[in-house]
Amino acid sequence: MKMTPKLATLLILAALVLLAPFLFPSNFYYRVGALIFVNSIAVTGIVILTGYAGQISLGHAGFAGIGAYACALAPAHFGIHPALAVVLGAAISALLAWLVGRPILRLKGYYLGVATLGLGILISMMLNNERQLTRGPDGIEVPELGLRALLKGWGLDLTNGQFWYYFCGLCMILGAWLALNLHNSPSGRALRALHGSEVAARTVGVDVARMKLQAFVISAVYASVSGSLLALQNKFITPDVAGFMHSIEMVTMAVLGGVGSVLGAIFGAAILTLLPQVLTVFAEYEQLVLGLVMMLVMIFLREGLLPSILRKLRRKGE
C-alpha cells in the first residue's frame, strides 16, 4: 500500500494513542490524554470549516453545549440510552447549523465571526438561564455510558481513565479519517477551491452557498460529538462547555497547530490542553500565557506550529 499523507497521519495518530501510555508517570495522564482527544475532535471540525473552506466560527462551543446537554437531558427526560443521546445531540446540532448557516454564511470575515459568536452566546445563555431544564450555571449530572461495563463482560477490564482514553482516542482517529477522506474528495476540493477564490469556484460550477453550509453542518457535528464525549466522560457538565472562551479555545488550538492540516490542528489541541495541566503552578499566568501564545504564533508562524516546523525541517534536509 502506498504511503499517502492520509495513511501517514492515521498511523502517527494510532501510534501516539497506543504508545503514549508507556510514558505516563501516573494514571492521571489517561484523563489528560482523553481530554486532548475530545478537544481534537472539535478541532478537526474546525479544520474542515476554517482550514478547508476558509470560514470562521467564534461560536462552535454552542454546538458542543448541545451535544453535552443532550447526553445529560435526553436520558433523564425521554429515557434514551446515552449513546443514542450522542446521536440525537449531533442531529440537533446539524439541524440548527443547517437552519442558521443558510443566512449566516452569506456573511464574510468579521461579520461571520460576530454572527457565529452571537449564535454561540445565545446557546450558552439559554443553558445558563433555563434552570428548570438545565439547572443553570451550577451544572447537571450525566448518566454513565455503560460501554465499559459491557467491555468488562467481554473480558476487557479497563479502569475508568483507561476506557475513556482509548475510546476517545478511537473516536479522534475516526474523525481524522473522515476529515482526511474529505480533503482529497470532490467535495473537499470544492471547499478548498472556494477558500482560494470564491468567484473562481463559482465559475467552475461550485454551488458556494451549499458547500459552505455542508462544511458548517459537518463541523457542528464534530463539535457536538466532542461535547457529548466530554459530558459522558466527566459524568457532569456546566454551561461553560458552550461558553465564548471554549469557542475561542477551539479556534486557537486549530490555528496554533496549523488549521490547514488535521495533524497540525490535533497537535495544537494537544499543546493547549497540556499547557494548563503541566503549568498548574502558574495558574495565575494562564490567561497571560494563552493570550501571548495566540499573538506570537499568529504574528511569527502564521501557518501554525506544525507546518512551520515541517517547513524548517525540509529546508534543513535539502
Binding site: Y110, G113, G291, M295, M298
Partner: peptide, 17 residues
C-alpha cells in the same frame, strides 16, 4: 482576517491576564 481576529482576541485575553 482569521489571523487578525485571533491576534486581537489574544491581546484581549492577555490584557485580562
Amino acid at each position: 482576517i482569521v489571523s487578525l481576529i485571533i491576534i486581537t482576541i489574544g491581546a484581549s485575553i492577555f490584557l485580562q491576564g
